[in-house]
Design a protein around this nucleic acid. Structure first.
Length: 100
DNA sequence: CCGATGACTCACG
DNA sequence: CCGTGAGCCATCG
């Protein structure tokens, strides 16, 4: 299983209404320094991947333009303010049995 | 093989 | 809040 696939699987596991950061996903995949590559993997994401739930450090949207992603998040009940999301409230904390 | 290029992140001013 | 610069590293031409 390569890095990209693990990344996509992890993102697929993020529940609606919750978000994760590039760095967090990279770390969960086992490679803490590859936040950038999470973005690369998302470049051509399969349709079953909730890419909109992935944000930059601090809860910022890195996609340009950001409207699309913000809409999808809003549709899941995530409150957005000036393109910022409160990680405090929405960041996903993987349950202990999530991956092993 | 080399250099440029990022859906990144952190530190500093 | 905004820029700059430095690490980072797979992918692409």
């Amino acid at each position: 299983m390569n890095f990209a696939d693990r990344v996509l699987d992890i993102i697929r596991a993020v529940p609606p209404g919750q978000v994760v950061t590039y760095g967090q996903v990279a770390a969960l995949a086992g490679y803490p320094r590859r936040a950038r590559h999470v973005g690369h993997a998302l470049r051509d994401c399969p349709q079953d991947v909730p890419w909109h739930r992935v944000l930059g450090a601090g809860g910022s949207v890195r996609v340009d333009p950001p409207q699309r992603q913000l809409e999808l998040l809003r549709g899941e009940g995530v409150v957005t303010q000036s393109g910022r999301i409160s990680l405090k409230k929405y960041q996903w904390q993987p349950g202990p049995l999530s991956f092993l």
